[in-house]
Each structure stands twice: as C-alpha cells, then as structure tokens.
Design a protein around this nucleic acid. Structure first.
Lengths: 232, 232
DNA sequence: CTTAACTCGTGCATGCGAGTACGAGTTGTA
DNA sequence: TACAACTCGTACTCGCATGCACGAGTTAAG
C-alpha cells in the first residue's frame, strides 16, 4: 500500500497522445542511435523494415501465449516464446508496461475485427449465442492479458480499451431485457459479470483438461441461455 | 527448575530428529536460543505463550486481508497488516510457502466449521441455496488465498486441502442431477466450475463497488437456480 | 553495393523481496 | 522475581527481473 508496483512503475506507459516526446533535446550524451521503437505507434510503420515488422508481430503474438503458460513470465520468457532475443524485444517496446499495453491493444483490435462482423439483430438470445460462439476464446485470451496488465498499466487505459467490446455486450443485454427476453430482476452489470465469469470458467476448465475446447461455447451458451431467460 | 524439557525445547531441533538432543549438560545458558517456531505445526501449541498465540492468529487473519488488497503483497506487507514486525512473522512461519499453507489450512478449517452445519438434505436446489448463502464470502476469501498459493504451494497440497469442501458441493450437484432437479445435459464438473465462477464474480463485483455484499447471495442463487434447473 | 535499419549477446547498475544472523529489549508465567 | 519465550529492529546475503549501454554482426531496400 505504501509503495509498490514491481518495476512497471505504472506512471508513464506512453500513451498514443501527442507527437514524439522522444526527441532528445540537448542532453549531453543523449544523441544515440534513434530507434524509432520509442516513437508512438501511430507514426511508426512508415519506415519499418519487413523483418522488424515480422518480429513485432511475433512478439505481440507470443505475449499472450507466454503469459497464459505462466502469468509471471518475464520479458526474457516472452522473448524466448517469440523466438527472438531479449534486446530485440526492448528494441520494439521500451518497457514491460508498454509491451503489455501494445499486446492488449492488438488483442482487442483482433477481437473487434471478428466481433464487428457478428449480427446483433434479431432475437437477443440468439445474438448472444452468436457473439459468444464467435469470440469466447478470443475474449478469453485478452482477459488473460488483462489480469496481468491490471497491475502494470494505468486503470484508465484498461477501461478505455475495454469499453468498446463491453459496450456491445451490454447493449445486447439491455435490449434483451427491454424486449422481455432476458430476465429483468437482475441488473445488467451482474449479467455482464456472469457472462465474463462463464467464459473465464470455460477457459480455465479447458486448460485444466476437464473440458474439450470444442464443447466450450455449447456449455457456455446452454448455461447462460437458461440463466438469463425471462421467466415467462 | 533447570530444564523443564517439556517436549518443547528439545523438539525444536527435533524437526525430524531425536527427542532430547539438547544435552542439559555443561554450559549454563550457553545453548542457543531455540525458537520452536520451526516445529511442525502439529506438536506446537503445547508450550505456546499467550501473546505468541495471539500473534499467530493475527497473522493468519491478516494474510487473506493483505492478499486481497494486493495479491502481490510481500511478507513485510502482511506483517504490517497484522500489526507486528516482520521478524516476528518469520518466528512463526519460516517461509512464505509455509505461511500460505497455514493460512489456507486455517481458512478451510474455518469454512468447514460453518459448512458442516448446513443441512444438505431435502430439495437439492434449496440445499444449494443454503450452502451458498452461508458460505459464499468465506469460500471466496479462501479462493483468493488459493490463487496466490497456487504458485508457491505444491499442487497436491492444494488439491488435498480443497477436496473436502469440493466433495460436498459435488455430491449435492450429483444428487440434484440424479433426482432430476438439476439439468443432466451438462457434466457435474461444469456445474461446479460455474458455481465457483459465480461466487468469484460476486466477490469481484462486490469489491469493485458495483454490488452490495448483502445482495450477493441473492444474485448468485437467482442465477444458478435458473441456470441449473432441469428443463421440465 | 552501400547504408540505414535491425538483431542480439554481454555486461552492468538498480531495485526488490525472501531469508538469515545477531542481539538487545520486553513480557508471560511458574 | 527469574527466566524462558517472544518481539522486532538492523544489517546483511542471495537471487532474480528490469532496463540501459555498447558494439559487432546481419539484413533489407534504394
């Protein structure tokens, strides 16, 4: 409570906000090799070499995997998982916090890409089923990252990124309640929490070997459909 | 009253060795200070001074609290939470793993004390409700510990301790399925997982301030009752 | 083919938490 | 009261992860 935070130090974590704050002013030995890794993600990508891009992608892909294997995975572990050197990783992300932030953004973008194609109209129950079917594993992967990032990335960042995905689900649940398809005796927040919990449970059971991944969406849907149904 | 040698003194060294290794012989007070803290928990408690016992209890009580505030709490943090010095804590538990193990045992014993009084007969659905009502916060507290302990206490220890509590719940669910009160189209393992998940979700929502603790059991039960009900 | 961009090992400074060692002071209890 | 039992600060050692500095080698792209 007094102080804490591993090394992430949380304070900064480089937002995408303004232009480059990275330009070294007049410091004495300051002018070094300028890796543009330190630039905000936005204006990079212009100059990137193909292999660098590949490595970046490899890191982003490896991060959730390594973190799922071991939530306490170090930067070195992640680098190994990505098949590159630790220093190369630092070339792309200058701190652990920045890496987690980027991995989170990447994961959520990926999820968005899938989720945004799901048809949310029609029967809310069916729509919920479609949503879960097409994304439970993806969302779960992200939520694994989320747990780890919680301690090292500022809370407002997390909320901000999570918002869009959550809003979609919440909207659906609200509509379902309004149309009397979902029960109205429980708050939407709770239904949302239960939905997340069910997906997490499925993921946990799956990695524990007690549940075949292919069965997961069926179980989740069977459970939620009945749990959420309005008592006619 | 040279040496009372009440099992205590000698036994310390006895960890696994002989009883009276402390040769009363020669030097008056030459012997080192032997804290019996390092004894197996079993044979302690005979000789304990009142304040030591109090401190031990304070540590055991503080551990889940400190760990809930911050899952990465250090030994020092826990000592502060308990209101004692770090070294005193080490006097009672010689390693972090031992502390967590003891806290887990303590928590589960406490839970057992409550759970064993719950009537499990009659309508399985009602019994499930009673079980949850009387223990969700307790079980959740333990499960908070569990998550932390996972990495530092051997898995078999965990299983072994958890077994009794889990068997009770599983038995109830199985009976419910057998009596056609709970749905049979989903495996018991899954129902169990969902139950845990719901309790965890309630705890999380509660600490996040989105759910009044008093409402928690009602929400959990309302959700599970419908989710588990057999389709008549 | 030339060069900037990139990889990546080695080495180092730093910080932090777990445990240990020592010992002086305090307190419960016989 | 006397003494063992206990508390608890100080000051280590140790291991480990982060992040920086340097620099030589490698690779993609104009």
């Amino acid at each position: 409570m007094p102080k804490q935070n591993t090394a992430g130090d949380g304070a900064d974590a480089a937002q995408q906000g303004g232009a480059s704050s990275a330009t070294t002013a007049g410091e004495p030995g300051a002018r070094k090799r300028e890796k543009n890794a330190s630039k905000p993600a936005a204006e990079r990508a212009v100059n990137q070499r193909a292999d660098a891009l590949r490595n970046r992608a490899a890191i982003l892909a490896a991060t959730p995997i390594a973190l799922r294997k071991n939530p306490d995975a170090s930067i070195a572990d992640i680098a190994v998982e990505a098949g590159i050197g630790r220093m190369t990783l630092y070339g792309h992300f200058k701190s652990r916090a920045e890496l987690l932030d980027a991995a989170l953004v990447d994961g959520l973008e990926r999820a968005e890409a899938v989720l945004s194609t799901v048809d949310l109209d029609g029967d809310p129950a069916a729509a919920l089923a479609r949503l879960i079917e097409s994304s439970w594993s993806l969302l779960d992967q992200v939520s694994g990252l989320l747990v780890v990032a919680q301690k090292e990335v500022p809370a407002h960042r997390i909320r901000q990124m999570h918002e869009k995905a959550e809003a979609r689900m919440r909207g659906l649940l609200e509509r379902g309640q309004a149309e009397d398809v979902f029960r109205g005796d429980l708050p939407v927040d709770w239904l949302l929490a239960v939905t997340h919990a069910a997906m997490n449970a499925a993921a946990a059971e799956s990695t524990a070997g007690r549940l075949r991944p292919a069965d997961a969406p069926r179980y989740i849907n069977a459970t939620l459909a009945q749990a959420f149904a309005a008592t006619a």
